[in-house]
C-alpha cells in the first residue's frame, strides 16, 4: 500500500435535472489497493457520488457543477463512460443490472467488448472470472435473468472484471441478498484487493459488513462526507453504532434539530 491516492474526489457538487442538489461539496480519496466504503442513509448521496466517479450521471440528467474527480492525477470529469472503463474505472450498478436475456457467459463477454478480446485471450479472461466465481460455471449457458440474486451479483462483478479495472465502484453489493451470500461476495472482493491490487469504492447500507471488510470509511449525510477514518475506528464510534447498527451502547440519544447534521466532525 503505497499511500498515493488513486482516486481523488475534490469538493464536488452534483445537480440533477438542473434543479435537485444531490451532492454539496463531497470529498474523498481512495489509495491504490485500498477498500473504501461509503456509509449513509437512503438519499444521502452515496450512489450519486459513485456515479460521479464512473461518469454515469449524464444518463440520469445529472451534472457535476463544481469540483473535480481525479484518477491517477488526471481530471476524468470529461471522459465518456467507455473511455473511463478503458482507463480502469468501472462501476457495478445498484441492483446488479445483468443483461437478463443474455446467457451468463455472454454477459461476461459483454464486459470485455471494450478490450476487443478474442480467441485465447478471451478464454483466459473468462477462466479467471470462473476461478473466482465457481458458482457461475454450471450456469454459463443459462439466461442471466434466471439465475439467483447472489449469482447475478457475482456475474455483475465478474462482468466488471472482464474489463481489467483498477478501481471498481460497487453500489450496494449486499442489497437483497442472504447474509451468507453477502459474506461470500465480500470475501471475493477482499481477494480481489489482496491478490490483484484492485481498489474498491463500496457504497453500502449494510454498515456492519462493509466496516468489517473495508480499510477506510466515509459517512455521507446530506450530500457531504461528514466523518471519515479507518474502518475499525469508525466501527468503534458509539454514535455510528447507534445510527447504523441499532445497537446502542447508551440507549439515550440526544434528539437533534431537523436538518442539522446527525454526526459531527470528530474532535
Amino acid at each position: 500500500m503505497t499511500g498515493t491516492p488513486l482516486l481523488v474526489v475534490d469538493d464536488i457538487e452534483v445537480v440533477y435535472q438542473q434543479a435537485i442538489l444531490a451532492l454539496r461539496g463531497l470529498s474523498l480519496s481512495v489509495d491504490a489497493g485500498q477498500a473504501v466504503t461509503l456509509l449513509g442513509a437512503n438519499g444521502a448521496g452515496k450512489s450519486t457520488a459513485l456515479k460521479a466517479v464512473s461518469n454515469l450521471l449524464r444518463a440520469e440528467r445529472g451534472r457535476v457543477t463544481r469540483g473535480r474527480v481525479l484518477f491517477e492525477g488526471q481530471d476524468i470529469g470529461r471522459l465518456d463512460t467507455a473511455d473511463l472503463v478503458e482507463a480502469g474505472v468501472i462501476q457495478v450498478l445498484e441492483g446488479r443490472h445483468c443483461f437478463p436475456q443474455l446467457t451468463v457467459e455472454e454477459n461476461l463477454i459483454s464486459g470485455a467488448v471494450s478490450r476487443r478480446l478474442r480467441g485465447r485471450a478471451l478464454r483466459a479472461a473468462l477462466d479467471r472470472v470462473y476461478d473466482l466465481f465457481p458458482r457461475l460455471v454450471p450456469k454459463r449457458g443459462i439466461n442471466a435473468g434466471y439465475t439467483s440474486g447472489g449469482e447475478q451479483q457475482m456475474l455483475a462483478i465478474g462482468r466488471a472484471l472482464m474489463a481489467r479495472p483498477r478501481l471498481i465502484a460497487l453500489d450496494e453489493p449486499s442489497m437483497g441478498l442472504a447474509p451468507l451470500v453477502v459474506e461470500e461476495i465480500f470475501d471475493i472482493l477482499h481477494r480481489l484487493r489482496d491478490e490483484e491490487g484492485i481498489s474498491l469504492l463500496i457504497a453500502e447500507q449494510n454498515a456492519a459488513v462493509a466496516l468489517r471488510h473495508a480499510d477506510h470509511a466515509y459517512i455521507v449525510e446530506n450530500g457531504r462526507a461528514v466523518v471519515d477514518g479507518p474502518a475499525a475506528d469508525i466501527a468503534a464510534r458509539p454514535d455510528v453504532r447507534d445510527l447504523y447498527f441499532g445497537l446502542s451502547a447508551s440507549s439515550e440519544r440526544t434528539p437533534h434539530a431537523p436538518g442539522a447534521p446527525v454526526l459531527t466532525e470528530s474532535p
Binding site: S54, V85, I90, S110, V113
Partner: peptide, 14 residues
C-alpha cells in the same frame, strides 16, 4: 443485444 436488454448496464460496462 446488450444495449437492447439494459441500456444503463451497457453504458456502465463500457
Amino acid at each position: 443485444r446488450a444495449v437492447a436488454d439494459d441500456q444503463v448496464a451497457a453504458l456502465s460496462v463500457g
